[in-house]
Amino acid sequence: MICLVSLLAGCAGQDPVLRSVLPQAEDSVVELTDTVFFPQKDYQCGPAALATLVVHAGKEITPDHLAGKIFLPDRRGSLQVELVAASRGYDLIPYVIDPSLAALLAELRAGRPVLVLQNLGLAAFSLWHYAVVIGYNTWEDTMILRSGTVRRQVVSARRFLVSWRQSSAWAMVVLNPGEMPENPDQGRYLKTVAALEEVGRYDTARAGYQAALQRWPDVDSALLGLGNCYHGLGRIDAAEKAYRSLVEQYPGHGIGYNNLAHVLAEQGQYTQALAVLNKGLLLAEHHGVAGQMLLQARGEIMIRQVQEQSVNDSGD
């Protein structure tokens, strides 16, 4: 017992954690007190934690709405992948932040609660738990959480770090379409938005790509994505415009020519579509599937053109 007490005392004497990652000028205390609290039901910290973020982002839901979407009854828990995926269903952008305390604190300062995965057990005997960090206090070197059945849990930053690092410091925020995280990682942000496009959340993804283009004007995949989303939304004119600026800015962009030709063909403009493909075959870098796709597209569009021509002829 004496050993245990001396161990605890040893911890208390160490250097503060938060001050070491926080610039002096920044706020010493942050607490997002208006963050809602959903006390978790049996094993359902995942639905409770995610609902906390989703409500904070302005949607009206309760953990019960999420249970069917992310809870795995026989594992008595929820998987990270499904937390991310379920957020898409609410037209929110689920962004996994950098695995660092500095990134977590930056999100809190920007007013966003952060969902974290902690291991409350031991490395060998894991007890995975989701909680929502809503603030920190550098004077006391503590983190403030909505966790489990505790509305305002205050834990030492050091203890929090030990539990959080075991999940490789996994943490996510949810963003409204158009909103950017603090110090976003370009590749990760674009992949996050592309996933929304892939599952057919075109309007949300569109806003995500537009925000990306504002921040990084020189990203070709954001322009491609913008065109794809407009196409998914049935706004063919806007899609055509986006693809046109894509191939103008990046004359070697094979997929740009492919997609532009397809939207032109969809509008019956076969001659123009074929011209675009020919230009693409001339200029595009033919690596991978892109070159082959351009040839294939040219073949198919020619056939369609002839077929329509025959229909018109027989109608005369």
Partner: peptide, 22 residues
Amino acid sequence: ELRQLAGRLQDMPAGGDGVLAV
């Protein structure tokens, strides 16, 4: 994500009721 999940639902960390388990 489907590829990540396939066959690994058992092994991935499932955040659950850490508090009661503690």
